[in-house]
Design a protein around this nucleic acid. Structure first.
Lengths: 226, 226
DNA sequence: CATGGCCAAATCGTATACGATGAGATATCT
DNA sequence: AGATATCTCATCGTATACGATTTGGCCATG
């Protein structure tokens, strides 16, 4: 579906400018987005900025209240859980739809990326891990013919990127499990397993990360999630 | 999540006005939405109309191209399939999440609605069938604690309402099966079946409608879908 | 008669301007 | 002093205006 906003419009400029700052944590949750201020900074008027903010709102990155203003969405632990659950469902489904259509070459690439993931672990490079992790999953559901679903997956990802920089940096040991699960999923697909099984495996993979996070949170008291 | 647009804003007025006309088929797919014209009709300016149209675009009810204009989204058979698949996934998931939380009273209400569905069948009242069908499913996933997912379900429904008035009017016999499947799902939940099984049953319920549609289309040649 | 370029109308995209609304500070009363 | 009313300011929501872009028809030309 991919919303059709022209690449060279001011509203698109504002959208990308804001989105970039939000997902890269330069604008943290709660940061107030004042239309006139942003417009001034970008040298445009407030109207396209407003439109950009509305789009970000629809994606859940921003909240916008009447006559009050917009701010980067505040997220609590509950939001993180909700987002991960949703992502588990849609990413799982996307992977299931994609699985029977993946070529051997796709699977080889997925395997290669997973090996690089293993490397990034040994060199303890969280940023790289996050990047490669997304690349891995993007390959797995890359052949999903249902664009609505892949859109939902991408949306979930960007929301997740806003929530926290990388998943595994918070939960020691989870990343190692993750790489092993990746391998398992690739094997399932290579063996021609029933797509529904592949879907559920992909879903469990993400649910496991969520559970690990919750256990970690619980064991270590505090409620930091944003 | 439920987007926070104030109830008494002009943009909200335009949004509801347009949305109502689209889902009720007064504005059919392909109908051109000219900003100035709509603004004039509503006695407001074009700016809030534009915002309303952008929202409808994000929901997939409208397409909007730069310097060309907006129109009610054109939908082909492929779009219908995609929408139904997506809905099968998210509605199934919502039902699965909701199932363990449903009270006996909820189930009794669901059962009652399903009986009324049976009635509407006997009196051949498609509109009523569609309404009750939504009510039935709304009860089933009503306890789903994940609002992101229920939002996705509602979005899918509105898109579906735009696509065609009711499903069963197109596929003779499908409605009867549908009512039987409803009963089956309620039983599964009442028996405390594993939520994943409930989810898959709910998903199959929708997939079956899609398959019936596709068979019907195939058997009767033509490609009417929009 | 077919084709290609040009012009005008329609429509969008954005800027600017201003009224409306809510939050916070200040003054006033008890 | 504490609470309440009021005032002011920041910010949004929308109207109006205008430049930018596309479309479709018209005319010139081969």
């Amino acid at each position: 579906m991919t919303t059709e906003v022209p690449a060279n419009s001011k509203s698109q400029l504002a959208y990308e400018w804001l989105r970039d700052r939000i997902v890269s944590h330069r604008f943290t949750p709660g940061y107030r987005l004042v239309l006139s201020q942003i417009a001034g900074e970008l040298g445009i008027s407030t109207v396209p900025v407003r439109e950009a903010i509305r789009r970000l709102e629809a994606e859940g990155l921003v909240t916008f209240e009447k006559n009050i203003g917009a701010q980067v969405a505040l997220v609590d632990e509950g939001e993180y859980v909700t987002t991960m659950q949703t992502l588990a469902v849609v990413e799982g489904a996307a992977t299931g739809f994609s699985a029977p259509l993946l070529t051997e070459e796709d699977l080889a690439r997925a395997h290669a990326v997973n090996e690089r993931l293993r490397d990034s672990l040994e060199h303890f490079d969280p940023r790289r891990f996050t990047e490669l992790n997304e690349e891995f999953h993007a390959i797995l559901f890359g052949r999903c013919p249902n664009e609505h679903i892949t859109d939902l997956v991408r949306r979930g990802w960007s929301r997740l990127r806003m929530l926290r920089d990388s998943t595994f940096s918070f939960v020691p040991g989870r990343a190692v499990e993750s790489v092993a699960e990746h391998e398992h999923i690739v094997e399932l697909i290579a063996e021609g397993t029933d797509p529904i099984e592949v879907e559920l495996a992909a879903r469990r993979h993400r649910t496991a990360t969520l559970d690990a996070f919750l256990r970690f949170q619980h064991d270590h008291g505090s409620g930091r999630a944003g």
